[in-house]
Design a protein around this nucleic acid. Structure first.
Lengths: 168, 168
DNA sequence: TTGCCAGGCTAACGGCGTTAGCCTAAGGTG
DNA sequence: CACCTTAGGCTAACGCCGTTAGCCTGGCAA
């Protein structure tokens, strides 16, 4: 990826982080770089390709955050790290987790890397790993979308969920 | 709501069910009714209001499906009913669960009604209810978006999750 | 010196939600 | 019966979107 392409991806990330996924517009993106929208197509085939790069960056960051969770093997700590990343970068998290994943446009392996800390923590039980992942994603996305009642004690829900999984 | 408004909502629902949320376009919707797009604004203030009505219908249907789950009080049966509805009406489910809920445009009480079967099943433990809801939503949306590896045994993941919750 | 080409540009297309403003037919009222 | 209101259509248009076609220019390589 060229130097210019990297600048474009960085600018796209900033747009998304500041204004949500809808704020990423080819024209707005070009504006931020001081060029015109059609020039972007010299570097990326379409908007989806730019988004995919941002998603790749976000997934790598999430993987890093999960790998750093302490103590290793602690499901509650892992859940807390997951939630912390999502709340720190809500728009990025939404972009990354909304709709089908453009797997063919992503750096290979980044998906597995993000999954590994959890898979290891549940003792390589695939069904359990998927269940915990679904729980964590559900908690985070419902929180980000404001679908829990205002004032709901989400820490209690996290704990109830993760304790139930850890117990087994 | 007038007769015509009802027809509009029904047509909107069909568009979404057939082509996904993006297929709901004011022009496409008007086409299906044999009128022009601007005429729709005689019946609804904007597109979001039409969508909100469709969401209201979908939520009522989901509530009905959950209330009908047998035997009452069985968390696995409730989960199965939830998943069955989502897979039967994937586009509707996505519309209903994606992004913030336009609560002020929804029929009052429909949200609580959809939640009640689960709340009752977990013995009115709010934290547990939210955790199970997050798990179920996560499982469904990840399945609909094709984010699990192809060939993953999702029934096993459902069972692992719901058993963990039921145990407590 | 000449030619190539990366990387800008303008103009434009079709689709989107939405608004302004017009028209017509039905129905209630004097 | 004549009149006025209004519900519910219509066309034209605006500003946004992603995207394409085609042009131009500056720097680098042969």
């Amino acid at each position: 990826m060229s130097e210019r392409a990297g600048q474009i991806v960085r600018a796209a990330r900033e747009l998304i982080e500041q204004g949500g996924p809808d704020a990423l517009t080819m024209r707005a993106l070009a504006d931020r770089l001081g060029i015109r929208a059609p020039s972007l197509y010299k570097h990326f085939p379409d908007k989806a390709a730019v988004e995919a790069q941002v998603i790749g960056v976000a997934m790598a960051e999430l993987a890093e955050a999960l790998e750093a969770a302490e103590p290793i093997g602690d499901l509650l700590a892992l859940g807390a790290a997951y939630r912390r990343y999502a709340l720190a970068c809500p728009h990025l998290y939404r972009l990354m987790s909304n709709g089908p994943l453009p797997r063919d446009l992503l750096p290979p392996g980044v998906e597995d890397r993000a999954a590994l800390p959890l898979v290891r923590t549940v003792g390589f039980d695939e069904a359990a790993a998927r269940a915990v992942w679904a729980f964590a994603h559900g908690m985070v996305i419902l929180e980000l979308d404001g679908r829990f009642p205002p004032g709901a004690d989400l820490s209690a829900a996290w704990e109830a969920g993760l304790r139930a999984f850890a117990q087994r």
